[in-house]
Computed example of a mutant assay.
Amino acid sequence: MGWLCACSALGGLVLAAGDAVVTQRENEGLQDGRHDVFPCLTEPEVIPWKSAPVFKVNHEPYTNTKKVFVRKGQVPPLTQLSVADFAAAGYFEDHDHEDMFEIFYVLNGTGKFAITWRGQDQHWTRTELAAEPGMFLYMPPGVQHAGLTDSGLQFLMVGAATTDKACTKTAILGGDADACNATTAFKQLHTAKVAHRALREDSQVQSGQLLTAGELPMAGGLEHLTVPPGQSYTGHDQMHTSVFYVLSGWGGIRFSMKTGLLEANTAVVVPAQVEYSIMGAGPLELLRLALHPCPRAHDEL
């Protein structure tokens, strides 16, 4: 397992040609359905765990699986919103992306990630991070990442492809990072340590910002929400499509003409300008990603 050898010592890393994954062209010709193009979602959609298709994670060793909730084309610029499920002693090899920003959010299990990035001083740094539930990693193009599990590891993966040539690995590592209208630095957070605030003075619903507007291409931000039992969270975003993922608890969501059950590992897509209300019965813990609505699809990892 090359990952173990690569991560046995921290420090600089010599990048080899071909390390980057080009999102638009990866695994061309696969016939397993992972690259099927889906129309942009214009109606609210609740996707429970049992309804999400399962695919192999297409990185070495090709034995790990993922549940895919958002497919390419449904909510641009997302390449996917999925949950990776790595068995005991599972791993994925070192790689980075030429044209994709990626988010990991650890849901369950233990393990470690190895992250390699170049700082403002132009020096490469490699570090190992112990994975634990609530860990959040933000990796722009050019940030190398690998993973290794102990007894097993499950984490949310969000990918967002960029068509802005100033935001690709080639441009960022070529010294043109300031031209990208997104954050190009690696970021690590834990939701337990992120400051939360009440959304309104009369509400117990709490919000903590993981990404602010503009940090992710074509996105209005990513927040961590807690909705206590008996409380509600009402939204009507004129500018963004909202993508929710339920981390724990249960409750319900109401749109103008339909309702849906919210429980752990359920995803929800709410197109821009659609009113909705989320009711907590659990309590309810969610992530909400705000994205610019639709024009074109990208490829999926």
Score class of each variant (00 low, 15 high):
G214Y: 02
Y105A: 09
Q231Y: 00
Q120I: 11
I172F: 06
E223M: 10
L173T: 08
L225D: 07
L225Y: 03
A179Q: 09
G175F: 03
V143Q: 04
G214H: 03
P229R: 10
D164A: 05
E201A: 14
Y138V: 11
A161Y: 05
L156Q: 07
E132S: 10
R197H: 12
P228R: 09
A171W: 03
L199M: 13
A177Q: 13
W124H: 14
A185T: 13
V243N: 05
T183I: 13
L222C: 07
D178N: 08
K169M: 05
Q154D: 06
M135V: 03
A179W: 11
L129H: 13
D176V: 02
Q154I: 14
E201K: 03
G230N: 09
L222D: 08
T226K: 06
K165Y: 13
V246C: 12
K169T: 14
G220Q: 02
P140T: 00
Q120A: 15
S242V: 11
A171Q: 01
V143T: 09
V194C: 08
D202F: 12
Q120R: 11
K187G: 07
E128K: 00
A171K: 02
T183G: 12
C180W: 09
T149G: 03
A166N: 08
T183E: 13
K112R: 13
H236A: 12
I172A: 00
L129W: 09
A185Y: 03
A131T: 07
H240R: 04
I115T: 07
P228L: 04
T234Q: 14
A166G: 08
L210V: 14
Q204K: 12
V194T: 10
L173Q: 07
A114Q: 10
S232P: 11
Q204S: 15
K193Y: 08
G174S: 06
A131Y: 00
F244G: 04
Y138I: 10
M218D: 11
I103C: 01
M239N: 14
P229M: 06
L137Q: 06
R126V: 03
T234P: 14
A130N: 11
T184Q: 02
T163D: 15
H224I: 15
A171F: 03
F155H: 12
T163C: 08
G221W: 08
R200Q: 11
A146Q: 08
F101K: 02
P133L: 02
L199F: 06
E132L: 06
P229A: 05
Q238G: 11
G174R: 02
F104V: 07
F244W: 06
A219N: 10
Q154N: 10
T125I: 11
T191S: 14
V194M: 04
A213S: 12
D150H: 15
I172N: 01
F136G: 01
